[in-house]
Amino acid sequence: MTIDNIMLIDDNKIDLFVNQRIIEKYNPAVKTRAFTNGLSAISFFKLLELNATIKSVAIPRVILLDINMPEMSGFNFFEEFKQLNIMHKNKIDVYILSSSTSPDDIKKAQNESRCAGYITKPLTVDKLKSLLDKSVSISQDEPFKKII
C-alpha cells in the first residue's frame, strides 16, 4: 500500500512550506494537508467522523507532527488523537518531526504508544524515503523509527 496522503501539523509556516516541497519532490502524487495547530487538526478529524462520505479520500495515512507548538503541543495532540474513533478504524502512522535532538524528547516520543517514529528537521527526501519506502528503509519492521 503506497502512501498517498500525508498530514502536516506545524505552527511554523516556513517549515510547512519546506516539508510540502520535499514531499512534492519525493512524490508529486502524494496529497498533503497542512494544519498550523493541533486543535484544528483534531477538529478536522471530528468533522470526518461526522461526514462518512468523504472519509476514504481525506483520511491521511501518515501524520508528521511538530512537538513545540502553542496551545497544543505535539504530545498533547496524542492525548486528543487517541480519543478519536477514526484512528481505531484506520491505520494512521504519526511521526514526530521536530528540530529537537534532545534525548528527553526522543524518549518521550518512544514512550508514546501511538507514536510511530521520530524525525529531526529539516525534512529531506532521503529521510522521507527511509521512512516511507519499504525498499530503502533500514528499520521497516521496527515499531519505532528514529531518523536523525
Binding site: 519546506v18 516541497r21 520535499i22 513545540n68 534532545s102
Partner: peptide, 20 residues
C-alpha cells in the same frame, strides 16, 4: 538553545530546497 534551533533548522530546510 532549543527554541533558537528551530528557525535554524527551518533555514536549513530552505537551503536544501535552494540547492535543488
Amino acid at each position: 538553545a532549543h527554541d533558537l534551533k528551530a528557525p535554524l533548522t527551518s533555514a536549513e530546510g530552505l537551503l536544501h530546497l535552494l540547492k535543488e
